[in-house]
Design a binder for these strands. Structure first.
Lengths: 217, 217
DNA sequence: TTTTGGCATGTAATCAGGTTA
DNA sequence: ATAACCTGATTACATGCCAAA
């Protein structure tokens, strides 16, 4: 009820504002919290004209009832879009204005899309981690191969030149330059414009932001 | 803003309704149209309690005026959070209910956060692509090193054993399953739990979904 | 301990501009 | 041309958590 809720003393707790960790909850499926009470087809019949306007108690009804939400959700799962027939049918069954059904679907699609981004992010994050690990492995492999090769070469002076070069550029993790090793040599991809950290031993670490996503600075 | 959309001529909007019927945006008050126009301190003084309830004129003003939005935005840029003083000050200056200012800031933070996720996604995507490229390069390097090594070995039978093994586990890109690969030497290629595509030559491709993100069918 | 206000997050409804049948 | 829809962005309200009073 607060309305211009300002006449209150205030103290707020300004600083340290950025510290809450975000939670994570739902998944693609259905979600709900507390039920706004059962609601049969009641409003449907009522033109819904006068009530409200404060002071009355009869309405406060934002929030659709759980049974209505369930039906809408089920319907949404079947088909993300709404055709006129379905809309009217749902409206009739649930006692809602067709307009409300349409609105619900629009909002639901928007939520779905936002959620989609989250999932995409998680999936990408996983991919990234996998590839990073693989890259790590490959670096190690390259290193050991070069060692072997140079050992080989040590016995066959003919390839000394190669061995030298390779050991030189191996250690640094910013792989790349691989083609140089192959002989063609160019591709100065410049200094890796990317962010992730690599320690002195060539270990690849995921970017710092992979762990903490939300929560603003 | 209410449940049964009663601000609307009962006909609701679905079919057979003329859109011009619900044009209830204009009322003696202010604004509307494109660019809500200047808005002086007007609502601020009004307790804003009983209006509405139909057939009235003093509705609600959705959409803040551009000048109000500008101020709010500027304020937001300075500080993402709102302390009581700032809230009151803005409310006074802009002719808004303090509650509106608080609400605006909350919504604004939510939008900011969503945007943040988008940026994070883009950044991660870029990282991923970079790492994939590097992995690609490393695979090529490993390949060429092995070739060189085996050529070497061809002259020195002693190392034949290694050459064989290595060529076996190199080509396929699904390097990982580390423990299995380590020693037991057998990874079932098929199961790679991650998505990205690798053609028969070990070329790494970004996942299919990197290109098209939003927009559903 | 209980109360209380701010905040993050979820919802419902509205609006503006663009599509499509 | 236009009604019905959509997406995207908004505004406001609802809920639940948390920390300070």
């Amino acid at each position: 009820m607060d309305w211009n809720g300002n006449l209150r003393p205030f103290v707020s707790r300004p600083e340290t504002s950025f510290s809450f960790l975000y939670n994570y909850n739902q998944y693609p499926g259905i979600e709900m919290k507390h039920d706004p009470v059962e609601v049969p087809a009641y409003h449907a019949v009522v033109p819904a004209m006068e009530k409200n306007s404060y002071g009355n108690q009869m309405e406060k009804k934002k929030r659709l009832a759980t049974n209505q939400l369930e039906s809408l959700e089920n319907s949404f799962q079947e088909e993300i879009k709404l055709n006129p027939e379905r809309k009217m049918k749902l409206a009739r069954e649930l006692g809602l204005q067709p307009r409300q059904v349409a609105t619900w679907f629009q909002n639901r699609r928007a939520r779905w899309k936002a959620k989609q981004l989250e999932h995409l992010y998680d999936a990408l994050k996983k991919e990234f981690e996998d590839v990073s690990r693989e890259k790590q492995k490959l670096q190690e492999e390259v290193l050991s191969l070069k060692v072997m090769l140079s050992e080989q070469v040590a016995k066959k002076p003919i390839y000394a030149g190669y061995a030298k070069i390779s050991s030189e550029e191996t250690v640094e993790s910013t792989s790349e330059r691989s083609n140089k090793a192959r002989g063609t040599g160019h591709h100065q991809i410049g200094e890796s414009s990317y962010v992730f950290n690599v320690d002195d031993y060539g270990k690849v670490m995921p970017p710092y932001w992979l762990g903490v996503m939300p929560s603003y600075p």
